[in-house]
Amino acid sequence: MTTPKRDTYTPETLLTVAVRVFNERGYDGTSMEHLSQAAGISKSSIYHHVSGKEELLRRAVSRAIDALFAILEEPGARDGRAIERVEYVTRRTVEVLIAELPHVTLLLRVRGNTTTERWAMERRREFDQRVADLLKAAAADGDLRADVDIKLATRLLFGMINSLVEWYRPQSQGGGQDGDRLAETVVRLAFGGLRTEHAAADRG
């Protein structure tokens, strides 16, 4: 049995380990013993930093949620026509997913079995609804095709974005996708088919 190392962890580095283990084993399948082994420190050392694994989960998903909601406060998400704002939010959502990949992956995998998971899912739905409202506004402006169901378009848009967590790997980890190019590709694929002809012409 390996003797746990002296605790040199900070709350941030401990969180990094916890997120990795949660993503590998699933939150329900992770015990404090698993976290202790992965961190190489004793369980009592972990409790020195946090009250338990649910606090680690809360911190992890909060980081992803805060980053997503911060997008909605940026000028590009608040100013201009709705179609321009929703394209901006889509692009930035992909960028945040890439920048916070482990945390967003965990957020998308929570199942609602704990208070923290239910809170995270509610916040996710709130963010999705804000984006859906932008799509509705763009449709009302005549910038989205009238023959496309907005609810379906919203689901397909988020399906495409959220699927990135299953296959995207940064170039530093051997992936071949440039993050900026990927974000632009998602926007062009999604809105190339959704924009009306005049809105597409305005985009240039």
Rank of each mutant, 00 (worst) to 15 (best):
A201Q: 13
V148N: 02
A39G: 11
T115C: 01
G26H: 01
L108E: 10
N113R: 15
T90P: 12
S42K: 07
T105A: 11
T8N: 05
N23C: 08
Y9K: 13
A120P: 09
V96G: 02
A38H: 11
R123I: 06
K53Q: 02
L135A: 01
Y168Q: 12
E74M: 13
W167H: 10
N162Q: 12
A70K: 15
D133G: 05
E184Q: 10
G179V: 05
V187T: 08
R109E: 10
L134M: 15
N113I: 00
V148Q: 04
R78T: 15
Y168V: 14
S163I: 02
K136V: 02
L97R: 10
G193Y: 04
G142A: 05
G175M: 12
V17M: 08
R81A: 13
D149P: 00
H198N: 08
G159N: 08
G159Y: 05
S44Y: 05
K43T: 14
D147I: 04
N23I: 10
I98A: 15
M121D: 10
Y9F: 14
V187H: 06
K53V: 02
L106T: 08
L108K: 04
D79Q: 11
D178R: 04
L14F: 14
R25I: 00
F191W: 07
A99P: 13
D79H: 12
R203L: 13
E197F: 07
Y27C: 00
K5F: 02
F22W: 09
G175F: 01
L106P: 13
R195L: 15
L108W: 06
G159H: 06
I71S: 09
R111Y: 03
T115L: 14
Q37C: 03
S62Y: 04
A146M: 03
I83V: 12
S45V: 03
R85T: 13
D143R: 05
T10R: 12
D147A: 09
R181Q: 12
